[in-house]
Computed example of a mutant assay.
Amino acid sequence: MSETSDLIALRAAIPVIRIFDEAKALEFYVDYLGFTVDWSHRFEADLPIYLQVSRAGCLLHLSGHHGDATPGSTSFVPVADAAALHRELAAKAYPHLRPGLDEMPWGLQITVTDPFGNRLRFCEQRSAEASDADAG
């Protein structure tokens, strides 16, 4: 590696997710998924909101600003225990969604869709060794 590349520390990307209604976004991301609002910003009182939510090291930016993100996008979120998250979500009284727990070739996965058509795929990924054994 070059001397310059050793100094550049890349970190996990933070998805920007387009939202259209602040109350619905908070109901979904905070009340249902269990994220916490870290901060929010508006340039003026009647302009769209931009906020950061987090849960256990996962950061998401939610934006009401046109052009910040494409509605209907998908974010892949690694999770340590997909079954525990699935049980937690199933126990909540969120009337708009009942996600399944799907066994995929790459791991155990829960896909949720927010009120704006954006998908989050929470996945407990298989180790490379387990994936290699399945392929053989």
Results as ranks from 00 to 15, higher is better:
M1Y: 11
S2Q: 09
E3V: 10
E3L: 12
T4P: 01
A9T: 14
L10C: 08
A13N: 12
A13I: 14
I14R: 15
V16Q: 13
I19D: 02
F20Q: 10
D21K: 02
A23W: 00
K24F: 00
A25M: 05
E27D: 15
F28S: 11
Y29I: 10
V30C: 13
D31M: 01
Y32M: 11
G34T: 15
F35D: 00
T36L: 04
D38V: 15
E44H: 06
E44V: 05
A45V: 12
A45Y: 00
D46I: 02
D46F: 00
L47H: 08
P48Q: 02
I49M: 08
Y50E: 13
Q52C: 09
A56N: 13
G57A: 09
G57V: 05
C58R: 10
C58D: 04
C58E: 07
L60R: 00
H61R: 08
H61P: 02
H61C: 07
S63H: 04
G64P: 04
H65F: 09
H66K: 13
D68E: 09
A69K: 07
P71T: 10
P71M: 03
S73C: 11
V77H: 03
V77N: 02
A80W: 04
A80S: 15
D81V: 05
D81A: 08
D81T: 05
A82P: 02
L85W: 06
L85G: 03
R87M: 07
E88W: 00
L89Y: 04
A91R: 10
K92W: 03
A93S: 11
P95M: 08
H96Y: 07
G100D: 07
G100V: 03
L101P: 02
L101D: 03
D102S: 06
E103Q: 13
P105C: 11
W106M: 12
W106A: 13
G107P: 10
Q109R: 10
I110M: 08
T111G: 04
V112K: 04
D114F: 03
P115G: 01
P115M: 02
P115V: 01
N118D: 10
L120W: 02
A128N: 07
E129P: 02
A130R: 12
S131G: 14
S131H: 12
S131M: 15
D132F: 09
D132N: 11
D132G: 04
G136V: 13
